[in-house]
Each structure stands twice: as structure tokens, then as C-alpha cells.
Amino acid sequence: MSVLRPESTESALNGAFDAVKSRSLTRLAFERFARNKVAVVSTFILLVLVIMAIFAPVAEMLTGYAMEFQDRNFYSAKPPNWDAKHFLGTDQNGRDILVRVIFGLRISMIVALVAATVALIVGVLYGAISGLVGGWVDVLMMRFLDLLISYPLTLIAVIALAYFGRNIYIVFAIIGLVEWQIMARVVRGQVLSLRNSDFIEAARATGVPTASIVLRHIIPNVIGIAVVYLTLTIPEVILVESFLGFLGLGVQEPNTSLGVLISEGATRVEHKPWLVFSPGVFLVLLLMSLNFIGDGLRDAFDPKDR
């Protein structure tokens, strides 16, 4: 193959190619994320919370109190007592709050993870199919979403509870099935704009088969945005769980969740504020860190920046 005239070759070669290392878009996104201080701090907090939740039994060992253990000396909710190793006080039944909060955190996180995974899988598939197929299939699928959105989430959860009994995991799989709507819409929007983009047309013009177009060009460009909305879905699910717990519809004794703990404490907030304070702080930390991470990821992946 002949090389064309030197001028046209040279011209591109001696271009201003600075000696920076090549970085992919994903890489660039993470570099931008790393520059976002709030997001980095949030990631750190979330990591600590996750580790606490995973190693919840360690708290039992450290304090010497099992989650269900009722300390007779500390009945009817006593304030924190460091000598007795009740660092955050006890509840009505003399159970250690620190231990219960950590176990509550664990349940809240598991439940959120279940729901979010369901939301991710269903949402991405649904959105991608709707956007790719288009036409009346798209219209039908989107109208179905509108239908789902018009049902209040809590109502669906309550009905599901009545039907399946109080198996929290089933309930949250169902919440996940409802929570994927936003994900599906976002993914569909992304797919639609990708479908009309020049580089997809370029692939079509070259004769690349549709399956390869989806695999090579569409999916890699959808994943980023799906992850962003995943991190924003999780706090929403946790909030729903807490609300159900608050209504008394959450996990059953002796298990607990942050929501259940808050609802128990809320009744006595005037005289015994530590009952609601500790789970409240954990819930706020968890929600805020997830939200900031989500925001940080969204900014980092935002294609407008490049």
C-alpha cells in the first residue's frame, strides 16, 4: 500500500500530541470522580459502613452483648454507659443499641442490594429493548411503565406483604421490580440517542450486523449511566424499607433494620432521644454517602464535559 505525499502524512504526525498517556473515557471519569472531594469522602464513609455491616458479629464480640441479649440491669432504655460497654445505651428490653444498629444496618443494606440488583437487571433489559426495537413496541412498553408509576410504591409493598407474608426478601425483590422504572427510562433515553448517533450510523454503513452493533457500541455506552442510577436507586429503596419499618411492616423481631429501630425510638424521643439518635445518624450517613457518590459518578460520567 503506497504512502501518500509526505506533506499530508507529516502534517498529522508533527501535530500537538502531548506525551500524556492514553486514557479511556471510563478512566477519565474515575479521575474526575477522584477530584470530587465530597464523593471521595462519601465513598470512604460508605466503605466503613459496608465493612461494619459485613462484620456485624464483631460488634457482639467487642461489647460482649449478643443482638438478642436482654441485659436485666439495663431494662427500659438506659442512656449510654461506657463502663457497662453499652456505648450507645440500651432499648426497652435492655438490648444494646450499638449492636442492634449495626445489625439493622446490615439488614437495610442487604435489602437494598436485592432490590437494586433486580432494578438494574430488569431496568436495563427493559429500557434497552424498548429503545432498540422502537415503534409500537416502544410505545406499549412505555405506557406500561406509566401505569406502574401511577401506583404508589408503598401500597404495592403493603399488598405484597399481605400476600407473601412478612418475608422481607420477597417483598424487596418486589420493590425492586417496581423501582426499575427510572432505570428503564434512563437506559431507553440513552439507547435512543445512541441509535441516532453518527457512530452507530457509521457501523451500519459499514455493514456491521445488528448484534455486533448492540454488543460493541450500545452496551458499553449504557453501562456508565446505569451504574450512576443504580447508586441513586439504592438510597431510595433503603428509605422505602425504613418507612415500612416505621409503619411496623418491616423485618420481624428479633431481626431489625434501621427503619424499625427509628420507629421504636420515635415514640420516646422526648425522654430517651438516644433511642432514635443512633439509628438516625447511621441512616443519614448511609443515605448521604450513597447520594453524594451517585452525584459524583453522574458528574464524572457526564459526556457534556468532553
Binding site: 479511556s24 473515557l25 471510563t26 448517533s197 453518527d198 457512530f199 450510523e201 457509521a202 457501523a203 460493541r216 457500541h217 458499553p220 455506552n221 459526556p303
Partner: peptide
């Protein structure tokens, strides 16, 4: 649009 015609993650 030369840049838009190239798949961004490849």
C-alpha cells in the same frame, strides 16, 4: 462531525 462518528469507548 468526525469525533461523533467514532465510537467513543473504542
Amino acid at each position: 462531525d468526525p469525533i461523533a462518528s467514532l465510537s467513543p469507548r473504542r
